[in-house]
Amino acid sequence: MKRSADNSVRGQCEDILRGELSYNLEHKILASENTITNRLLMRSQELQRAYAELEDKLGNDSRALTTFLRTLLSSAAFWCPEKNAEARKDRKRLEDVNEEIASLASRLANLLDERSVLHNHTGFSCGEVYDLCSATEAATKDHHMFQSYPRTEFRQLFAQYDGKYWPSLSQVVRAVGQDAASTEIYATDPLTEAGTAGPRASQADFFRAWFASIEENSMRYSGFLPQGFRLSDESMATLADCALDNDPDKPTGAEYIKRLRQRAREAQKGLES
């Protein structure tokens, strides 16, 4: 990587960004982050005050500077309003899928019960899958790991305890449906939780995810950013405008960030009370 002749933190930040870009291009990864990096480099003049504040807060700590810039790149790449709209569609789709599973599982369980009655009370029968053991055997006939290891013990266990000790197929299916009907959809990581907390996709999602990413990368969680690290509202707004390619004539503004932070504090107090 060719280093900048500028020895300021601005030069150091831009060297870090160029290094990230060079690595990603070489390894053909993170195209979305590369787009954000190019935006920051192209709008460098707008970021002078933000970089100056980074110097005040982090000095020339390259690990902390790299960590901070990476939080910006990843948040802007994966938690921009467009991506947040997609995340909400994914959550809605998961809700719909669960509803469909619950409905189909109930119908299938009822049909399995009816088939058992017909098998037991008529002169007819069909199929080889009739209980948990036969279903497992059928499902794992091409499962190499199962066939190589637990199959023998599995068969011995079923031979040791007859059918009354095991749930029926309909009970298993019904349990799957009941779980789908009652399950609560939740985010599996703090960034997803923060980025989809609002009622609809907006720029606020990006900032919530970015704040969460900064916290996750603090020394409190074995990261490199000082605990309690915080840039001014103005610097955060400027960095976001450049990363998200917002119109320079319509800046986000420090007041917007101030309101977001105030709402976050109020929400936290509500959770703690």
Rank of each mutant, 00 (worst) to 15 (best):
C13E: 03
E14Y: 03
E14G: 01
D15Y: 00
D15N: 09
I16L: 14
L17A: 05
L25G: 09
E26N: 04
H27Q: 02
I29G: 02
L30D: 06
E33D: 12
M42Q: 13
M42P: 06
R43C: 10
Q45D: 07
R49F: 07
L58I: 03
N60M: 09
S62Q: 02
S62M: 03
S62K: 08
T67V: 08
R70G: 09
T71I: 08
L72D: 00
S74R: 06
S75Q: 11
A76Q: 05
A77M: 11
W79C: 06
C80Q: 04
E82T: 12
K83G: 10
N84Q: 15
E86Y: 15
K89L: 14
R91L: 07
K92L: 13
R93G: 11
L94D: 14
E95F: 09
D96Q: 14
I101F: 08
S103F: 10
A105S: 12
S106G: 02
R107N: 01
A109Q: 03
L111I: 11
E114N: 01
R115G: 05
H121W: 02
T122E: 00
G123C: 07
G123M: 10
G127N: 11
V129N: 07
C133Y: 01
E137K: 15
H144D: 11
Y149W: 08
P150Q: 06
R155M: 09
R155F: 12
D162C: 15
S168P: 05
S168K: 15
L169G: 08
G177E: 11
Q178I: 11
S182H: 10
Y186A: 11
D189Y: 04
G195P: 01
A197H: 09
G198C: 07
S202T: 15
F206W: 13
F207G: 04
F207T: 07
A209N: 05
F211Q: 00
M219V: 10
Y221E: 13
S222I: 11
G223F: 06
L225P: 13
Q227L: 06
Q227S: 00
G228R: 06
S232Q: 04
D233M: 03
S235I: 06
T238R: 12
C242N: 05
A243K: 01
A243R: 04
L244N: 09
L244A: 12
N246H: 14
A254W: 02
L260W: 11
L260H: 10
R265Q: 14
K269C: 02
G270F: 03
S273M: 00
